[in-house]
């Protein structure tokens, strides 16, 4: 869908992107991660042709990216604003027309989203009359109104309230199901874990990591397991003996815990379960993979 090849961009001697290559497949949700100032927004602006790269090429569905592709892309920037004195529908019509839509198409698509987001009676409202959450919906609708094939969202979850975050996550998943491609940059690692298929990590202008979320987490697993159980913590520790090491615990209730355990020697998950059986009442047990947050911190600090 989108293929970036050796993209470099500098602003007056300051290198913002250094030889970044990426490949985003059709129908996937791709997360662009990185600390502040890493170059994510610059990369997103380059893809949107807001700024031009110094070196490298971008291909959109196999063709060199050009202005005519812009009507197939939807973009919600991190710093997003609306004209405060305009009415909701007027504003959406304005942005839709700029994306090359006809007035009739804007009307049809707006009606669809208005119904979906409960915006039916907002048409004549001025933007300044809307609450922040309502304005966020208008921003999202104006981004997806022209049914783009590629949706680019820069920090879509920052500034959104939890209800809207949930709403937008659901929409993104639905859009993915319809075959749309989504590129999002985010600091919200929980959301990234939940909805992204693949991610790339940009640090100090360079891409340092790219891959599927599950593979990245799997590669970094440390052999830790978690067990949720009922019973006594002392009994649990006694049962572990020397083959396993308790590294962390969470108290869920008077006799209910989650214990994090590290294997010693040749012991495996099977051995752990056998050791514990009969000593405590196991409710659940699973392998603990590093969270994307941990992967992120680890990679950036390396």
């Amino acid at each position: 869908m989108l293929k970036l090849d050796s993209i470099s961009k500098s602003f007056f001697q300051k290198l913002a992107l250094d030889d970044v290559s990426l490949s985003i497949n059709e129908g996937e949700i791709f997360g662009l991660l990185g600390p502040n100032g890493a170059g994510k927004t610059t990369l997103i602006r380059v893809i949107n042709r807001i700024i031009e790269q110094d070196k490298g090429t971008i291909r959109f569905k196999g063709e060199l990216l050009n202005d005519k592709h812009l009507s197939r892309i939807g973009y919600l920037p991190e710093e997003r604003g609306l004209y405060r004195t305009m009415q909701v529908y007027e504003h959406i019509l304005f942005l839709g027309r700029l994306r090359g839509m006809s007035k009739a198409d804007v009307r049809t698509n707006y009606n669809y989203w208005a119904e979906k987001f409960g915006m039916e009676n907002w048409e004549k409202k001025r933007i300044e009359e809307l609450s922040k959450g309502m304005a966020q919906k208008v921003q999202f609708v104006s981004t997806v109104l022209h049914q783009p094939d590629l949706l680019i969202l820069d920090e879509p979850f920052s500034g959104f309230d939890p209800i809207n975050i949930e709403l937008i996550q659901q929409e993104l998943i639905e859009m993915k199901a319809k075959g749309k491609t989504i590129l999002l940059s985010s600091h919200n690692m929980k959301s990234v874990e939940e909805i992204c298929d693949r991610v790339a990590l940009i640090h100090q202008s360079k891409k340092i990591l790219e891959g599927s979320v599950s593979a990245i987490r799997d590669e970094r697993k440390t052999g830790n397991y978690a067990v949720r159980f009922r019973g006594s913590m002392i009994a649990f520790v006694n049962a572990l003996w020397t083959g396993f090491e308790l590294i962390d615990k969470e108290i869920l209730g008077e006799d209910r815990f989650v214990a994090h355990v590290k294997m010693r020697g040749e012991n495996n998950f099977q051995d752990l379960l056998q050791t514990l059986l009969g000593q405590i009442q196991i409710e659940a047990a699973w392998e603990v993979l590093p969270s994307m947050q941990e992967v992120f911190i680890q990679e950036v600090n390396q």
Binding site: R45, N48, R49, I50, D67, L70, I73, Y75, L76, P77, E79, R80, G81, L82, Y83, R84, L95, L98, R99, Q139, S142
Partner: peptide, 16 residues
């Protein structure tokens, strides 16, 4: 104003 309320980046994605 367009700069300070950040509508400008939305517009720049569609127009030069």
């Amino acid at each position: 104003k367009e700069k300070s309320n950040r509508i400008v980046e939305v517009l720049l994605a569609s127009v030069k």
